[in-house]
Amino acid sequence: MEFLGISLTEWIGYLSSFFIAISFFMKNIIKLRIINTLGCILFVIYGILIKSWPVIIANGIIVFVNFYYLVIDRRPERLKEDEVKP
Rank of each mutant, 00 (worst) to 15 (best):
S52L: 01
L8C: 11
S17T: 08
V65W: 07
I34N: 02
F18H: 12
V65Y: 04
Y46K: 05
R78L: 13
Y69R: 01
P86Y: 08
G5K: 03
N36P: 07
I6R: 10
S17A: 11
T9E: 00
M26S: 02
R33W: 00
I30P: 01
G5Q: 08
S23F: 00
K80S: 10
L70G: 04
C40E: 00
I45G: 04
K85I: 13
S52G: 04
G39C: 00
M26F: 12
F67M: 08
E10D: 11
W53E: 13
M26N: 04
L4C: 03
E10Q: 14
I61C: 15
I45F: 05
I35L: 03
I41F: 12
E10C: 07
A58P: 06
L42W: 02
N59S: 04
V71F: 10
I56Y: 10
N28K: 10
V44W: 05
I62M: 07
Y14K: 04
F19L: 15
L32A: 08
K27I: 09
I41E: 06
E77K: 13
T9S: 07
A58E: 13
I30Q: 07
L4G: 01
Y69C: 01
V55F: 11
V63P: 09
G60V: 00
I45S: 05
S17E: 07
F64M: 15
L49N: 06
E2Y: 11
G47T: 08
K51M: 05
T9Y: 00
P54K: 08
Y14P: 03
T37Q: 07
L42G: 07
V71D: 00
E2F: 14
K27D: 03
M26K: 11
